[in-house]
């Protein structure tokens, strides 16, 4: 029966021991552990959320940069095409101009040549005329030593001049 009757002394010690344990552990023990676990749990949740956001951000940035690259490529090809076009245009224009210029120069040269040629021909003619006059003078001087021959000569010359005129 003594097993079923609580002993006063043991009750006292139990109150002391259990009271101390409850006081210390409820005040300094379990709340700290539980809040520590809670803190860590929140930290992990937060970190996971942040990581997820970072991943999404990264994906978005990647997509953005891809789009940017694509656009840049497009622009680049456009610019290149434009450049080629304008180059062709410039070259074409230059060619035309050059041809024109060349034609002009040729024309000028041709004109110059023609002028020179005429000049030269004129000079030659003049020379020839002078020469022929001199020669004819000499010839005439020799031939006109005689009177009648002089007269013949004049007549013949006159005939010659008249014939082509008629």
């Amino acid at each position: 029966m003594s097993l079923l009757t609580p002993e006063l002394g043991l009750l006292f010690w139990m109150l002391v021991a259990f009271g101390a344990v409850v006081f210390v552990l409820v005040k300094f023990g379990f709340p700290i552990i539980l809040s520590g676990v809670e803190k860590r749990k929140n930290y992990i949740d937060e970190s996971l959320l942040i990581a997820k956001q970072a991943r999404e951000e990264l994906a978005r940035v990647k997509a953005d940069s891809q789009a940017l690259i694509d656009q840049t490529r497009r622009e680049q090809s456009e610019i290149l095409a434009e450049a080629a076009k304008s180059r062709d245009m410039i070259i074409g224009g230059a060619k035309e101009k050059a041809t024109e210029e060349a034609a002009k120069i040729m024309e000028a040269a041709r004109e110059q040549i023609a002028l020179e040629k005429e000049d030269a021909i004129r000079q030659i003619r003049r020379e020839v005329a002078t020469l022929s006059v001199e020669i004819s003078e000499k010839v005439l001087r020799e031939k006109l030593d005689r009177k009648n021959s002089q007269m013949d000569m004049i007549d013949r010359l006159l005939d010659e001049i008249n014939i082509p005129k008629s």
């Binding site: 043991l10 010690w13 021991a17 101390a20 379990f30």
Partner: peptide
Amino acid sequence: TKNAASLLISAILLIVIILLIA
């Protein structure tokens, strides 16, 4: 008594262990 002493020992043990963890 034996029970009271054992009680105190286990109380101290428990307090030390839990406070170390805390």
